[in-house]
């Protein structure tokens, strides 16, 4: 059985709109699979987006995840090292892959 970890993100933002007081945006604890490389995912991906954004892409090929991480580096300027990129892609393909290389 795969071990699941509930990740709670502790920062809570406050917003204000038509009501004249702060409104809090909830943070959702997405269930993300644990495994080798998870630390790198946590360190490199969460800065910009939730785990929900990852797991709701659906199961994808190795090439897809490779290109996705490349896009984060090239276009979104995420400072992900070459070593971490490999670890992250391996993790994503193992846990959110479709078994196909491309």
């Amino acid at each position: 059985m795969k071990k699941l970890l509930l990740i709670a993100i502790l920062t809570v933002g406050s917003l204000f709109a038509q009501v004249k007081s702060d409104v809090e945006v909830p943070y959702i604890s997405y269930q993300i699979k644990m495994g080798k490389g998870f630390d790198a995912v946590q360190a490199n991906c969460l800065m910009c987006h939730s785990f929900g954004y990852i797991i709701n892409q659906g199961p994808q090929s190795r090439l897809f995840w490779d290109k996705k991480v490349d896009k984060m580096i090239t276009h979104f300027k995420a400072p992900i090292s070459k070593e971490d990129k490999v670890i992250v892609v391996n993790y994503l393909f193992k846990h959110y892959g479709n078994g196909k290389l491309k």
């Binding site: 993100i9 917003l15 709109a17 038509q18 409104v23 809090e24 945006v25 909830p26 943070y27 959702i28 987006h49 939730s50 929900g52 954004y53 709701n56």
Partner: peptide, 17 residues
């Protein structure tokens, strides 16, 4: 539920989807 919303299908909280 998110601010000013009833509970919805929630794909991500940050950014909200």
């Amino acid at each position: 539920a998110f601010p000013e919303k009833r509970p919805m299908i929630t794909y991500s909280d940050r950014p909200p989807l």
